[in-house]
Design a protein around this nucleic acid. Sequence first.
DNA 1: GCTCCTCATTGTGGTTCGAGAGGCA
DNA 2: TTGCCTCTCGAACCACAATGAGGAG
Length: 391
Amino acid sequence: MNGSSRNEEAEAPQEDREHQKRLCDYCGSSMALLYCRADSAKLCFSCDREVHSANQLFSKHTRSLLCDACDGSPAAIFCTTESSVLCQNCDWESHNLSSSSVHDRRPLEGFSGCPCLNELLTVVGFENMDKKALLLSDECGGGVGGGDGFLGSGVDGSFDLDDGFSDFLVWDTPSVVSLDDLIVSNPAYKFQAMGVPPLPKNRNAACGRHKEEIFRQLRVLVKSEPNLFSENVDVKPLKSLASEQNMQRGSLFTGFEHDAEPTVFPAYEAHDFQYNDCGTAEKRESSPKTFIRSHLQECCVVPDKHSYNDGSTSHANDGHGHGGQMNSEAASAFPKVAAHELSSQNRETALSRYKAKKKTRRYEKHIRYESRKVRAESRTRIKGRFAKMDH
DNA sequence: GCTCCTCATTGTGGTTCGAGAGGCA
DNA sequence: TTGCCTCTCGAACCACAATGAGGAG
């Protein structure tokens, strides 16, 4: 189509601009994918490895994926609805709208140290991908995703391989979603979701809009350092993986296998993951909207401008897929509200900073010096106050 | 550049007290 | 609406070892 070719022509310079915007601060040539707070630097994977393996001090730096929206801040939120990783500010700006606030979002964690490649894959959500699979993706990618040729990304952010490999890279989807599946598996309600696959464990699985570049750099990394994969990784042939996947759908390459913060999310999120996927419209239609709405409200999982960030209520789910399909309602409402946002941008910025700070606030008492604590506990007191010691 | 010394500052926990919120007549 | 009572929560208080900054040799 002419339209599509024009789009391609328009996309190429856009890619260049994006590349320029995300240039690695260290090498200045590769696309930066990570952000190091300690260094205030954007880095590509190989430079990150080079910089942070220099000594033990550097290796303690915490790095995060780079925000897909501003390209200049560490990402803290993964929006599955938009398949984007966002920093606190961008998350707030794009999700404080009433219609888009129901996007399915979840917090991201950074990493430190000098991780091996499969640990890096875990960080971006593909922990079970082995070296062979990674390299195979290079061979069979066919250049769909840019000149280097990796996996083509579909509309929803999934990949377009015919051999079933792409299925490893999409989020887990229950084959059948029924009304029973929407029942929260909360012991307090004595309800138990029926016939629902177990909750994916790795909630950090996210690599945003730059999956292809991430995989490209990881491939370069594994080619330059063949020992980068840890020895104990069980390398399985791709075909066997595929067949295994058929038997145990969702257990492979979903990026959810890693145990991460099991207690952070309340039980209602279990059902989010159970029916929230890039699945079909029929599935969504089979879920009574009113039921979902009332259920979500009951569980307080629909964050609004005032409450989404308070830490107790986590990121909500609108029941739509995570695969990059923006809520059409939200999309249509965006320009109107965006104008309003510009007028109150300062306030929004201040609010976002406040929200971000509030989110990272530590309520528990933090003891900096254990020796002083021990000393204080053993001190003599008069009505709670420290008393002079008799020497 | 390194070591030693001096001095100001910090941080620690149990108790008390006061401000503020909420309930009730 | 006002006044009183109860409850909750957080700030202040205390002494002193530990810590860090700065200067001298």
